[in-house]
Design a protein around this nucleic acid. Structure first.
Length: 477
RNA sequence: CGGGGAGUAGCGCAGCCCGGUAGCGCACUUGACUGGGGGUCAAGUGGUCGCGGGUUCAAAUCCCGCCUCCCCGACCA
């Protein structure tokens, strides 16, 4: 019926099949612009709720800033503009007769350049700081090659922008958010990540440094799952965002920005899915438990329905997101359907079960059938869901371990990536030429992150000079 | 952006070369049988043939322009 290409046959096709057939998202007819369908959006909503709670807890506030950015604002921070220029979309005409605008307006590719000049009004004194803002919105980047969730011309995200009175505080902010992102990836999406700093070449345009969260997908490619940038005073200088400090001296703010996007839905698909479809971590699953009633006629249906109604309210009371699939389909169809959608736990409930006061429980990972009594079922399911979340993370962590190696020379790295993907830890001197050499020789392999915890030891894999950094290499999306 | 291919029902396709009443499979609707791992039979619904223009008595079919999608490459991550 709804056949999905096997992952081992063609990973890219498998991904597209799963995203579309599990009803996460679709293309829209406007090139590169996607429709996020309710099942996919619900996962994003779960991520939004989780992250929004985290930042509210630490004093951040949600704002809404304009979609369109005057050109004069956009071009003020030189490095930033240069970085984004190739992918900015412009509004140049408006009105019924398509009149040319005097000043073209950029559709935001990110909002640093509009928030800077606007927020300065609200920052005069050190007493106004820190200013911790965030906005949930969509941005447009005119990409040439698009993939559902991973690279579309419009995507939905949060962008946090914060302003501080000291460099230390701003850097701490960037670190704090990186920790939140790690938690979203690992605790919510069950995707283990490497965290650390980007190399200068991979640093966000205009930033002093960029911190990143990198996950590993089942095809061995790395995926950037969130970034947190420390700007120093770069943006404050460009937009004159300043405050009077305690000594009544004028001083430029230190700022940060950080974002995670709907790309994370793609990450969850590629980190956990299998040939039968999605496997959704319970904490972000729109449906955590699906009940498949089994019946043949009105009488047997009524019997099963009475049975389900006698205990299903406990699930609701227990905060378990569940659904009963009363569609008039064959049970086998429904099993396949909900497996494609990646629902963690399924309960098969028929007349025999009603008589025995039990259900048949099947989890999406093991697919083993276990008979479970309905008394105390909400608590049992809560435990099963928690265990499922842990098992999913452990499985992904094992995959990451099994696909992470430590190599010393460029030759070894090139040979490695000819055969397989994954992360490779190695030593690097810190020079951009050497970084480019890796990319050229190893077929697009890049430095995903610099280890912030371990000191470098040994020699640079390319030039053999003493290494300054321990870095993780991978091919990436 | 370069090379190649394609747009006909929700999806997958035939019809186009050689102009003349728009078809097939799946899905969908209805009914019957069925029902603990992807059912069977029957009867139905559903179309600006991607968009715009041209040629013609007549265009899904021929000609011109545009749009969108897929594959390979380039670029980007």
């Amino acid at each position: 019926m709804k056949e999905v290409t096997k992952m081992s046959d063609d990973f890219d096709r498998w991904y597209t099949d799963v995203v579309r057939k599990a009803e996460l998202a679709d293309w829209s007819g406007v090139r590169g612009m996607m429709v996020v369908r309710p099942y996919g959006w619900a996962m994003w909503e779960a991520i939004m709720r989780a992250f929004d709670d985290m930042i509210k807890e630490s004093g951040h506030e949600n704002w809404a800033f304009p979609l369109l950015i005057p050109r004069e604002f956009l071009v003020k921070e030189a490095e930033h503009v240069e970085g984004f220029a190739p992918e900015v979309a412009w509004v140049t005409k408006a009105g019924g007769s398509m009149e040319e605008l005097e000043e073209p307006l950029a559709v935001r590719p990110t909002s640093e350049t509009i928030i800077g000049p606007l927020i300065k009004r609200y920052i005069q004194s050190h007493r106004d700081l820190p200013k911790l803002t965030n906005q949930w919105n969509s941005v447009v980047r005119w990409e040439m090659r698009s993939r559902l969730f991973l690279r579309s011309r419009e995507f939905w995200w949060q962008e946090g922008h914060t302003f501080h009175a000291s460099a230390e505080e701003a850097m701490e902010e960037a670190d704090l958010i990186l920790g939140y992102y790690r938690s979203i990836a690992e605790d919510w999406l069950a995707v283990p990540v490497l965290t650390g700093m980007k190399s200068p070449a991979e640093t966000f345009p205009g930033a002093v440094h960029t911190l990143t969260v990198e996950g590993l997908m089942k095809d061995g490619l790395a995926l950037q799952m969130g970034t947190s940038h420390y700007f120093g005073q770069n943006f404050a200088r460009a937009y004159d965002i300043s405050f009077s400090n305690k000594e009544n001296e004028r001083e430029l703010c230190y700022s940060t920005s950080w974002g995670i996007s709907t790309r994370l839905v793609g990450a969850l698909v590629m980190a956990h899915g299998d040939d039968s479809g999605l496997i959704v971590p319970p904490k972000v699953a729109p449906i955590q438990v699906v009940l498949v009633p089994i019946f043949r006629d009105a009488d047997s249906r009524a019997k099963v329905e009475r049975f389900i109604n006698s205990w299903a309210p406990e699930l609701k009371a227990g905060g378990i997101r569940h659904r009963v699939d009363w569609r008039d389909e064959r049970p086998g169809d429904k099993y396949a359907h909900w497996e494609l959608k990646g629902v963690p736990i399924r309960l098969n409930v028929g007349g025999r079960d009603a008589d025995a006061g039990q259900v048949e429980m099947v989890d999406r990972l093991s697919r083993e059938r276990i008979i479970v009594p309905v008394s105390g079922i909400a608590k049992r399911l809560r435990n099963e869901l928690d265990a499922f979340q842990t098992k999913l993370f452990d499985r992904a962590a094992k995959f990451q371990r099994d696909n992470t190696s430590e190599l010393d020379t460029l030759d070894e790295v090139v040979a490695h990536f000819r055969e397989k993907g994954g992360f490779v830890w190695t030593q690097w001197c810190g020079e951009e030429d050497e970084e480019e050499r890796i990319k050229a020789d190893a077929g697009g392999v890049t430095i995903r992150t610099i280890d912030q915890n371990a000191k470098a030891s040994g020699r640079c894999l390319v030039c053999g000079r003493p290494a300054k950094f321990r870095v993780a290499l991978a091919k990436a999306y």
